[in-house]
Computed example of a mutant assay.
Amino acid sequence: MARATVLSAAATAAAVISAVPVLAEPGAPPADSAGAAREVDRLFADAERAVEAYNGTAERVETLRTSFERQQDRVSRGQEAVNEARRALGSAAAAEYRAGGFEPTLVLMLSGSPETYLDHAAVLDRLGDRRVAGLRELLAAQRVLDQHRQEAEEQLSELTEEQASLARHKRAVQSRLATARRQYERLSDQERHARERADRAAERAAAPTAEHGKRARAGALPRAGAPVSGRAAAAVAAARGAVGLPYGWGQAGPDAFDCSGLIQWAWARAGVALPRTSQAQAGAGRRVALSDARPGDIVVYREDASHVAMYVGGGQMVHAPYPGAQVRYEAVDVMPVSSVVRP
C-alpha cells in the first residue's frame, strides 16, 4: 500500500467524528420541584459518563494514529531498502553486460520471484558470493517491507473502527446533553433561578462554610495545614487559575475543560503526566483517606468514578462540574466521594 493511499484512507476515516446527535425526547419531568432538580442532576451525571467514555475512545484513537504514522514511516524506509537492493543488483547486471555477457542468474536476480531460484542448491553453486549476498539482502528487505505493509493495513483497520466508535460516543454525549438541557428547560422559572443562584454562589465560594468547619473538626473532611509538595502546589495553582473558565466536554484546556481534562491539564503544568479519563485517573496514584487529603489530591466521585476534582485545601475542591457551568470551587463533600488519589 502506498503511503499516500493509506494516509488518504486515514483522513477519510477521521471524517466520521463530525456526527450529529439522535435520541428520543425524554418523558415528562417529575411533578415536584425536588424531583425535577434531582432528575436534571441525574441527566447531567449521565452525560458526564458519556463524556468520559468519549475521552477514553479519543485517547485510544490518538494512540493508534501515532502508531499508524510510525508504521507508515517504517513502510517508507522498507520500500527504500528494497529499491536500494534492486539498484545494487541492477548495477551488477549492467557491469556483467558491459563485460560481454548477461548470465541467466542475473536475470533471475532481478525477477519478481527470486525465491524460486534460491530454492535450488544447484543454482547457489553457480552464483558468486557477492551475488548471493545481494539477492539475500533483496529478499530480506522485501519480507520486512511486506510485514510492515501488513501491519500498517491492520492498524489502519483498527484506527478506522475506533474512529467510528468515537463518533458513536460523540452522538451519545450530544444526545445526553440535549436531554439534560431539555429537562432543565422544563423546570419552572423559580426552579431555574434557584439553581442558577446556587451555581453563582458555588462559583464565589473560596472558603469552607461554618458547617464544613464543624464536619472537618469531626474528622469527616480533611484536616487543615497538611503539607503540600512543590509539584502538588504547582498543580493546585494551575487549577485555581482555571476557575471561571467554561466547561467544555472533551477538552483539556487551556481555555475550557471537562472534569478529567482539568485534572490532567493542571498536573501537566506541574510536569506530571496523568491519563485522560476520570476512571484511569482514579488509579493513577496512591489512595488516601479523605480525612488525610492534601492539596493537589484527586477527589473521585461516584462509584463508577465518572467525576473527578482537585482538592485545594480548606475543605474545598476545584472542578469542572457540568456543561453550561464554569470551573469553580465547591465543598469537597458536595457529592459522595468514592476515593482520594495522590498522584
Score class of each variant (00 low, 15 high):
G230P: 07
H212S: 13
E185P: 03
P275D: 09
E39N: 11
S157M: 12
E80Y: 01
P227A: 09
A180E: 01
E84F: 09
N55R: 14
S306M: 04
A194P: 06
S8I: 08
R276P: 02
L159A: 10
D41V: 05
W265M: 09
W265H: 12
E52N: 14
F257M: 08
G250Y: 01
E158V: 15
A320N: 05
L145D: 09
S113L: 15
S76R: 12
T277N: 07
G315F: 00
V228A: 09
A141I: 02
Y311H: 00
A266G: 04
A205R: 12
R197L: 07
A205F: 00
F68E: 12
R231G: 08
P343N: 04
G100N: 04
V300N: 02
S67E: 15
T5P: 01
A37G: 11
Q142L: 08
N83A: 14
V236P: 05
A50N: 01
L124G: 14
P323S: 14
T12C: 08
T179Q: 11
A31N: 09
A95Y: 04
Q326I: 07
R217W: 06
R176C: 03
D189A: 15
G225I: 02
A99V: 05
R136W: 10
G134V: 06
A9K: 15
E84T: 13
A180G: 02
G324S: 06
V22H: 15
D297V: 03
E154S: 14
V308F: 02
R195M: 15
R176A: 12
P336K: 12
A206S: 13
L187E: 10
L274Q: 01
G100V: 02
A81N: 07
Q163P: 01
A13N: 07
Q183P: 02
T179I: 07
A224V: 06
L43F: 02
Y329S: 04
R60Y: 06
A14R: 13
R197E: 05
A53H: 11
P222C: 00
T12S: 14
A305N: 14
A256N: 02
V337I: 10
H319I: 03
V272T: 07
A270G: 08
R215P: 08
A226P: 00
G253Y: 01
D297W: 05
G313P: 02
D292E: 10
Q251E: 11
E191I: 06
G112W: 15
G244D: 00
S157D: 14
Q150L: 12
W265V: 08
E80S: 10
A201T: 07
T12N: 13
A252K: 01
A141G: 06
A320C: 09
R287T: 04
G244W: 01
A95I: 10
V132I: 15
R240N: 10
A172P: 00
V327R: 05
Y184L: 12
M310S: 05
D199W: 13
